[in-house]
């Protein structure tokens, strides 16, 4: 199923004007940012298809840079994001129109480079209603929706690595919602992307890092938190038929 839950239909909370061209673009940019260990100093964006044709009117350009600044889709700074990136964060921002085939009418390729020289290149599609699919990371074919906390593991293609990884997740009682594995060549570099039902903990990461074939791990967690959630948690808002004492105040 392309759309997994009620909040992929009702939502996200976002600044306008387009869920696919603004909110989806912000989420693609933010996913790319989470794949880079440190803050970027360069951001190069290529737009394809409808993104290329209509990016200016939809604010796709400011939205994707807002995402690269780790803004949520409803962050009111999005309209000002390019200026913030260039002037306050010192990021060199470039845009151009993508060439060649692309997988979806709303597609963007994001290349980020950090001060340390680390780079990441992401191909993302915006499939509607603010939902996205990241279909490529550094040349590896993947399928990542960023709806869930997601582990991205760069590792060697080696017998048993996937079992080692999933074994660690089993130890942590963490359930896998979706996973994809791709490799550049036999016994070469490989990438495993795992969408989890639970939050990714530091303990989990430290265990995964102990697997010798694992080269590096990134965590993509762009699950939106509604910024108003705190102020309206009054007992009167609970649904019918639920006893208030079932709800612990600490939750």
């Amino acid at each position: 199923m392309r759309f997994k839950d009620v909040f992929s239909i009702i939502g996200p909370a976002m600044v306008g004007p387009s869920s696919s061209h603004t909110a989806g673009a912000a989420r693609i940019g933010r996913s790319a940012r989470h794949l880079l260990a440190d803050a970027p100093v360069q951001a190069d964006i290529a737009f394809y298809g409808s993104f290329a044709a209509t990016y200016a009117g939809h604010g796709t350009d400011v939205a994707i840079i807002g995402g690269i600044l780790d803004f949520q889709t409803d962050d009111s700074r999005i309209p000002d994001a390019i200026r913030l990136a260039e002037e306050e964060r010192g990021i060199q921002v470039t845009f151009h129109e993508g060439k060649g085939l692309y997988p979806h009418p709303n597609t963007a390729r994001v290349k980020l480079v950090s001060a340390a020289g680390e780079s990441v290149e992401v191909l993302g599609t915006s499939i509607g209603g603010g939902n996205i699919e990241i279909v490529e990371i550094n040349g590896f074919r993947v399928k990542m929706t960023a709806i869930y906390p997601t582990l991205v593991l760069f590792h060697a293609d080696h017998p048993g690595v996937v079992a080692d990884i999933t074994g660690e997740l089993k130890e942590e009682h963490s359930n896998i919602g979706y996973m994809s594995v791709d490799r550049k060549s036999r016994s070469g570099d490989a990438l495993t992307v795992i969408e989890l039902d639970t939050e990714i903990t530091e303990v989990m990461l430290s265990h995964l890092r102990r697997i010798s074939a694992v080269q590096s791990i990134r965590v993509v967690d762009i699950t939106d938190k509604c910024t108003m959630a705190k102020k309206s948690q009054s007992p009167g808002e609970y649904p019918k038929g639920v006893e208030e004492d079932e709800v612990s105040p600490s939750e």
């Binding site: 996200p12 976002m14 004007p17 603004t22 209603g129």
Partner: peptide, 16 residues
């Protein structure tokens, strides 16, 4: 929405 204000996409911003 068109003036880049805050809305809920239902199901999209164009139809919010």
């Amino acid at each position: 929405n068109a003036s880049m204000g805050r809305i809920i996409a239902t199901p999209t911003a164009g139809s919010c």
